[in-house]
Simulated assay, not measured.
Amino acid sequence: MSELEIIDCHNHILRTADHSCDLYSNLLRFSAAMGLPDRPGFFGTPDEAERVMDATGIAHMNILMFTWSGVYWRQGQNILPDEPATRAREAEELRRRIIRRIRENNAWALEQAAASPRLSCFVGVDPVLMDEETLLAEVENGVRAGALGVKHVPMNHGTEGDDPRMWPVFDYCASAGIPLLTQAAGFMPGRPARYAKALGEFPGLKIVFAHLGHDRRFGQGADAEVLELARAHDGVHTDVSLRLIEVTDGHVSAEAMAAHLRAIGTDRVLFGSNWVISEYLWLRARPGVTPASSHERLDREIEVLRRLPLTDEELAAIAAGNFRRLTGLGT
């Protein structure tokens, strides 16, 4: 399908080179000691994202605004004073500063989306550092400013999908018809099965489980949990970020990938890349290899998408149609 419209539902465009380096060395903990460059050779900024879209033929990128607030909070505990009253006071100040960073990052992403018809965004939240009032205000303000959904990162917060602190967000999203995209994994916080309670309590809740569930065994564990949830709840969706490369690497056949997507429902699957983090992860997987571009892995994922043994209608839905329907983009 040479005219296939592609919308990348899952990417991490970063504010500046410094922001990218913080992700690279602080969140991912990449360094020369791992055989990697001390700094990435590309930074995932909006200008670069525009060039990547031009080079790959991607029509639209959706920014998942992720502030690694849990990392900042845990690191900050190491420099708090010993005296209890002073420690409590400065811990509260640290919490407020991190929340301010979440808000500023969300505001920045919304500005980028407002400035370019090729960009949209989901706003990020932190149910540990934000109280209920703050959580709901951030989501409501984001939606009013044009956000298409909410981003949840259990790995960052150290929570799971059944954490009661997320209930106000689930309630709002279900009532407003706003999708929530969550990091999913079978080997860290983010087990899809832990969202079953929320999906049962909020029938209108629309959740996109990233990475097909992200189990180390394709189709098993967390992957199977996404499939089970999709069969039980109409609002369950997933994206293929971090997973199509398994076909390129020879770990999964194109036929097995297509069969798994059909089992979930090709009307429930969205194309996503996890750019620019995915390109950094590929550096780790291939130490010493200098990438040809900032979208080398993304090129391969798009190639896999195009040659999956699916019908033209199924490919069109996964590539862009399902995201448009789920978020209302372009309506």
Score class of each variant (00 low, 15 high):
residue 2 S to I: 04
residue 131 D to H: 07
residue 164 P to A: 10
residue 156 N to A: 04
residue 22 D to A: 00
residue 1 M to S: 15
residue 260 H to E: 10
residue 271 F to R: 15
residue 136 L to T: 14
residue 8 D to W: 05
residue 266 T to I: 11
residue 48 E to L: 07
residue 87 R to N: 13
residue 142 G to D: 09
residue 296 E to K: 02
residue 41 G to A: 09
residue 116 S to A: 02
residue 48 E to C: 05
residue 12 H to T: 01
residue 202 F to E: 08
residue 287 P to T: 12
residue 259 A to R: 07
residue 228 E to A: 15
residue 190 G to V: 07
residue 201 E to I: 06
residue 269 V to Q: 00
residue 36 L to N: 00
residue 51 R to I: 06
residue 4 L to I: 05
residue 301 E to T: 14
residue 241 S to C: 15
residue 212 L to E: 15
residue 171 D to Q: 11
residue 214 H to I: 05
residue 186 G to F: 10
residue 246 E to N: 07
residue 159 T to V: 11
residue 318 I to H: 06
residue 25 S to P: 06
residue 2 S to Y: 09
residue 63 I to C: 09
residue 326 L to Y: 01
residue 215 D to P: 11
residue 225 E to I: 02
residue 24 Y to K: 05
residue 136 L to A: 04
residue 39 R to D: 05
residue 235 G to K: 01
residue 50 E to W: 06
residue 23 L to A: 12
residue 102 I to K: 07
residue 251 H to C: 01
residue 252 V to I: 11
residue 6 I to T: 11
residue 208 V to D: 08
residue 295 H to R: 05
residue 295 H to W: 04
residue 136 L to Q: 00
residue 197 K to E: 11
residue 319 A to D: 11
residue 187 F to C: 13
residue 282 W to A: 04
residue 271 F to E: 14
residue 181 L to M: 15
residue 152 H to C: 02
residue 317 A to N: 11
residue 230 A to K: 08
residue 261 L to N: 01
residue 254 A to P: 09
residue 301 E to Y: 10
residue 23 L to D: 10
residue 252 V to W: 02
residue 257 M to E: 14
residue 184 A to D: 11
residue 222 A to H: 12
residue 43 F to K: 04
